[in-house]
């Protein structure tokens, strides 16, 4: 997939005080883009604006294709099984019968969910299984752009590894253009091709770093340096 899949231009957003100021960035086709920044700087708001769940006060967002989003808190309906949760979007788009069953089964197994996982209600499933179900719920609609909000937060090492493997498999197979917002650099940086480093609130893009060709140690070093630089500049570090 070539070309720019998602472009954020000069976005400004305020909730009683400015949260995002003049933020511009883009996501190329087939790329995994990371967004990092200090806690509470506005990363999630930016992701929600990218998804179209929030409108910018100024600026614009251009999307070249369907967007799927996975929220940090899973947000699965507790009264439905994981299967029913994964199938939700398909039902809303009028897809039923064999096509629905096939898609739910295919995308669930793609993220590593078994039939017995899918028969569980969210309260009975582990954190990792719930996160995978939330990912499958977004993937069954076959989006061209995937947005992940803190996908590794709250998961144990085993669940994080398993989710990372599932994501790697999806990217290798489908080259899905993805934006990941995360403060867990050790989890994010091995996956990302590029990162944008945001300043503390109100968030601006402080730096854009191309990570391709760097080993993990170098990636960590470069992003940590950038974060330290912006924190010391803003006086919060």
């Amino acid at each position: 997939m070539a070309g720019v899949m998602l472009e954020v231009s000069s976005v400004y957003k305020s909730f009683s005080e400015p949260v995002l100021v003049d933020v511009s960035l883009h996501l190329n086709g087939g790329e995994v883009l990371g967004i990092v920044g200090p806690n509470g700087c506005g990363k999630t708001t930016l992701l929600r604006i990218m998804a179209g769940l929030e409108s910018p006060d100024k600026g614009s967002v251009r999307r070249e294709g369907k967007v799927g989003i996975v929220f940090q808190e899973d947000r699965l309906l507790p009264w439905k099984t994981l299967w029913e949760n994964v199938a939700l979007g398909l039902k809303y788009h009028g897809i039923r019968g064999e096509e629905l069953t096939k898609r739910v089964r295919d995308y669930s197994s793609m993220v590593g969910l078994t039939d017995s996982d899918l028969s569980l209600h969210p309260r009975k499933a582990s954190g990792g299984t719930r996160r995978k179900a939330a990912l499958a719920r977004a993937l069954v609609l076959e989006p061209e752009i995937l947005l992940l909000d803190e996908p590794f937060t709250g998961l144990d090492v085993k669940a994080r590894t398993s989710l990372r493997e599932a994501l790697n498999w999806i990217w290798d197979e489908y080259g899905l253009s993805t934006v990941i917002v995360s403060h867990q650099l050790e989890e994010l940086l091995p996956l990302a091709d590029r990162v944008y480093v945001l300043t503390p609130k109100p968030a601006r893009v402080a730096e854009e770093i191309d990570l391709r060709g760097m080993d993990l140690e170098r990636r960590l070093e470069r992003v940590k340096e950038a974060l330290l630089r912006i924190l010391s500049r803003s006086g919060t570090g």
């Binding site: 998804a51 769940l53 939700l88 809303y92 977004a138």
Partner: peptide, 12 residues
């Protein structure tokens, strides 16, 4: 949060 989640997958 749940309302937003179903909206994000196309709920009317």
């Amino acid at each position: 949060g749940l309302l937003e989640a179903v909206r994000s997958v196309g709920a009317k």
